[in-house]
Write a protein that binds this DNA or RNA. Structure first.
Length: 357
DNA sequence: GACGCGTGGCC
DNA sequence: TGGCCAAGCGT
C-alpha cells in the first residue's frame, strides 16, 4: 500500500522533473559520476562538468586508466578535489574487483572511496532501483518540515527518525524516483529560505506549514567565524619559464599545482615570508622583483589574502624536478595543462595574458 | 562527533 | 558586500 503522500509526490515529479544529462541516459556509471559531482554542489554548476567528463571519460575503464593529472584537470574548478581523487581510485577498484561494472549492492558501493551513506543508497536506488531510502540536505529538510521536526536534522536521533519516516513512505519498486522526487522538491519548491508552499503538492501533509514554522525548520547550527590568514606566492622566472610546484597528495587542493609560497608568520614582512618559504620548500634564494597582484579568497574553513610577486633565482644550479614534492619549470603556454585551484589559476592567467615580469 | 575540505551564486 | 549556502565524505 503506497501512502497518498508518496503518490502525490511522484505525480508532481513526473510533471516537474528537470531534464538533466544524467536523467536523459541513466546508466549506472553516469548516475555514479553525477552523484559524486552533486555532493555539496549545485546542479547548474555540475552540468557542464558532467558533460565534459563524459566526453573525456566515456566509461569506467577510461577513468581507471587515466593519469590523475587528467582527472584533476577535468575536475578543476569544481572544488572538493578529494572527490576526483576518490573517483579515480574507485574506478580502478571497480576494474580489479568488480570486473569493470559498478556493483549493485549498497554495502559494496559504500565500500568504494568517495561513496558514503547517502551516495550508496542514492546510487543503488536510482541506478539499480533497489528499494532503499536515503538522506541528503534536501530530503532531510523536506521530511523534517513534513513532520515539523524541531531537533537539528544532523543529530543522530533526527537522522534515524527521518530515515524511518522515509521508509514508511517508500513506494516499493520506485525508490529511485521517490528519492529523486524528494530532492527535486527540496531544490525547486521546499527551499531553505522562502519556500514556495503555494506550489507544494504536499502542503496538506505538512505539519510545518500548518503551524506556520516552515522557515524555522530545519534548525540551523551556528557557524564559527572563519580565521583569516595572509600568504605570499612567487612567480619565479628563469629562461622564459616559471616554476610551479605540486601540492601534497591529500588535504587542501591535494595533488594540484601552485606557485610556491606560504603563510605569513607573526612579525614577518611579506618579502621575508616569501624568501623564507622559497628557501624552505625549494632551497632557492631569489630576488623579489615586483608585486603582481593581491588576491582575496574564501575557502570552506578560512579566508586568505595572497600577495603574488615576480622573482628571479639568485643561484645556480636552479632546482631540478624531484619526486614529491614535484616541481617543474614550464612555459606560460603550458600552465593550462596543470590543474590548479582558483587563485593560482588566476595568477597563471594573468602572467600568460599580460606577459608580466 | 567534530573537523577539514572549494567554488560560485544568491541577496 | 560579506554571510550563507548546495544532491557529503574521510579521518
Amino acid at each position: 500500500m503506497v501512502p497518498l503522500l508518496s503518490i502525490k509526490l511522484l505525480d508532481w515529479f513526473n510533471l516537474n522533473a528537470r531534464i538533466l544529462p544524467w536523467r536523459q541516459n541513466p546508466q549506472p556509471y553516469r548516475i555514479w559520476i553525477a552523484e559524486i559531482m552533486l555532493q555539496q554542489t549545485r546542479v547548474d554548476t555540475v552540468i557542464p562538468y558532467f558533460n565534459r567528463w563524459m566526453e573525456e571519460f566515456p566509461d569506467i575503464r577510461s577513468v581507471a586508466q587515466a593519469d590523475q593529472v587528467d582527472v584533476l584537470r577535468v575536475w578543476e574548478g569544481l572544488g572538493y578535489y578529494a572527490r576526483a581523487r576518490n573517483l579515480h581510485q574507485a574506478a580502478q577498484i571497480i576494474q580489479e574487483k568488480y570486473h569493470g561494472e559498478l556493483p549493485k549492492k549498497p554495502e559494496e558501493l559504500r565500500s568504494l572511496p568517495g561513496i558514503g551513506e547517502y551516495s550508496a543508497n542514492a546510487i543503488a536506488s536510482i541506478a539499480f532501483n533497489v528499494d532503499l531510502p536515503t538522506l541528503d540536505g534536501n530530503i532531510s529538510r523536506v521530511l523534517a518540515r513534513l513532520i515539523a521536526l524541531e531537533a537539528p536534522v544532523q543529530d543522530k536521533i533526527s537522522r534515524q527518525t527521518l530515515l524511518n519516516f522515509a521508509s514508511t513512505l517508500l513506494p516499493i519498486g520506485h525508490a529511485g524516483e521517490f528519492n529523486q522526487a524528494l530532492m527535486e522538491l527540496g531544490a525547486l519548491v521546499c527551499l531553505p529560505h522562502k519556500p514556495h508552499c503555494d506550489q507544494c503538492p504536499l502542503i496538506e501533509n505538512c505539519q510545518s506549514f500548518t503551524k506556520g514554522v516552515q522557515e524555522k525548520i530545519p534548525q540551523k547550527l551556528s557557524k564559527k567565524n572563519l580565521p583569516h590568514i595572509t600568504a605570499t606566492a612567487g612567480v619565479i622566472w628563469q629562461n622564459h619559464r616559471v616554476l610551479i610546484a605540486q601540492r601534497p597528495p591529500k588535504g587542501l587542493l591535494g595533488g594540484l599545482w601552485e606557485f610556491p609560497g606560504g603563510k605569513l608568520e607573526d612579525g614577518e614582512t611579506l618579502e621575508d615570508c616569501l624568501l623564507r618559504e622559497l628557501k624552505e620548500e625549494l632551497d632557492l634564494p631569489v630576488e623579489i622583483d615586483k608585486k603582481i597582484a593581491v588576491y582575496q579568497h574564501t575557502y570552506t574553513h578560512f579566508r586568505i589574502t595572497l600577495h603574488a610577486y615576480c622573482c628571479h633565482p639568485l643561484t645556480h644550479p636552479i632546482p631540478k624536478p624531484k619526486i614529491q614534492p614535484a616541481f617543474y619549470w614550464v612555459a606560460t603556454s603550458e600552465l593550462s595543462q596543470f590543474p590548479m585551484g582558483k587563485i593560482d589559476r588566476q595568477i597563471a592567467q594573468s602572467i600568460f595574458k599580460e606577459s608580466l615580469c
